[in-house]
């Protein structure tokens, strides 16, 4: 108990310090367009359900962003995990894909923005599914293919790399001992390689989601966007509502940390053997 209190106090030192500096500078500058006071931002959170600058409530914007990130991320995961597993499993597959992937890896997802827009235009999940015009269409129209693509791109690379690393680095002795116990190739794959690589795979999924989430603002700067935290930030900036900009930033940070902690809990619960082995 004593230890947890200490941990909490220690981890709060820097945030509190930041807030003190922030509040102090806000008083000094005395211009809300540059640095608003903490009070202004807290007010935004208290009135989170208000309609902000015509973009709706904060939970609604967070929800729209979350669905965008999760759909892009899901697309990234569905391609990256099987590909990473195959690349780790087969040297040939690795050789075929590795150079190709390495060329694309250094390109920041934001650099794909113009091309994504040129290729996918303003088509959205709504237009892709041929929804009839109506309330549903307006909602699903928020999820542009170009955004899904950008976020998927961001999450793809860390996942592929981490999954491949995990499969390749399974200790040879584990594979050998399964073989002498009579394992078939299928057994080796599903009962040795996959569970042994699982911690790396989860770690890749975690990094992928973090990067996908970080691509959000870039993705939501695409035209046709009318909601989302990233859009809220850019739009609030244009209206010199710095308090809203900061509110949006805090939302991104908090949701990102929350998503990350879900993965941390999963890793601690199911893969604690990994950190304790060796």
């Amino acid at each position: 108990m004593h230890k947890t209190i200490k941990t909490i106090i220690l981890s709060l030192i820097l945030p509190v310090l930041l807030m003190v500096i922030w509040q102090f500078s806000a008083w000094q500058v005395n211009n809300a367009a540059i640095i608003p006071t903490i009070g202004r931002v807290v007010e935004n959170f208290i009135n989170a359900s208000d309609n902000f600058i015509g973009l709706g409530s904060i939970p609604r914007n967070v929800g729209v962003s979350l669905i965008r990130v999760l759909s892009g991320y899901t697309a990234g995961v569905l391609i990256a995990v099987p590909l990473g597993v195959l690349m780790g499993y087969s040297k040939t597959v690795q050789i075929i894909f590795e150079t190709f992937i390495n060329i694309f890896k250094p390109i920041p997802p934001l650099a794909w923005q113009p091309l994504a827009l040129a290729i996918f235009g303003v088509s959205s999940i709504a237009s892709l599914l041929n929804m009839p015009f109506g309330q549903n269409y307006v909602f699903w129209g928020n999820f542009k293919i170009a955004m899904v693509f950008l976020i998927g791109m961001g999450s793809f690379f860390p996942i592929v790399a981490s999954v491949m690393f995990g499969v390749q680095n399974v200790r040879q002795t584990l594979i050998d001992s399964a073989r002498v116990l009579g394992a078939s190739e299928k057994d080796i794959f599903f009962k040795v390689l996959m569970p042994a690589a699982a911690p790396s795979i989860i770690n890749g999924l975690r990094m992928g989601l973090a990067i996908g989430w970080a691509c959000l603002v870039g993705a939501e700067m695409l035209p046709g966007s009318l909601a989302g935290v990233g859009y809220l930030i850019t739009h609030a900036y244009e209206l010199a509502r710095t308090d809203l900009v900061i509110t949006g930033m805090i939302c991104i940070g908090l949701v990102g940390a929350l998503l990350d902690s879900i993965f941390r809990i999963i890793a601690n619960k199911y893969f604690s053997w990994e950190s304790k082995t060796r």
Binding site: R171, T173, V180, T277, R278
Partner: peptide, 15 residues
């Protein structure tokens, strides 16, 4: 299966 083997170390599935 008729020929089993024991390795020097770290051959148990850690999970």
């Amino acid at each position: 299966r008729e020929i089993g083997m024991v390795f020097q170390s770290y051959s148990l599935m850690p999970w």
